[in-house]
């Protein structure tokens, strides 16, 4: 899951080296935190959050087999 978020985020931003993904796994849910360079935030959120929504959809699809809820937070 961490790898997927990294791949997605790095392909969108101008500063891939500053992409940081942390994962906290709970009993029922996985919390993924995505941090990018300040000037790249718009590139992973998009107009009206369109990119962020697409990213969450993809992460959700990847997690569908794990039977756990996944929360992607952009911090």
């Amino acid at each position: 899951m961490k790898g997927l978020v990294e791949v997605l985020a790095k392909s969108l931003v101008d500063n891939p080296d500053e992409v940081v993904v942390t994962v906290a796994e709970g009993e029922k849910a996985i919390l993924i935190e995505l941090k990018v360079a300040p000037q790249d935030v718009g590139k992973i959120i998009g107009k009206q959050g369109r990119i962020a929504k697409a990213l969450r959809t993809l992460v959700k699809a990847a997690a569908s087999r794990e039977k756990k809820k996944v929360i992607l937070e952009i911090v």
Binding site: L8, S11, L12, R50, I51, K53, A54, L55, T57, L58, K60, A61
Partner: peptide, 9 residues
């Protein structure tokens, strides 16, 4: 919806 999201990204 996943296909659309992947297409967009």
């Amino acid at each position: 919806e996943t296909l659309d999201a992947l297409q967009y990204i």
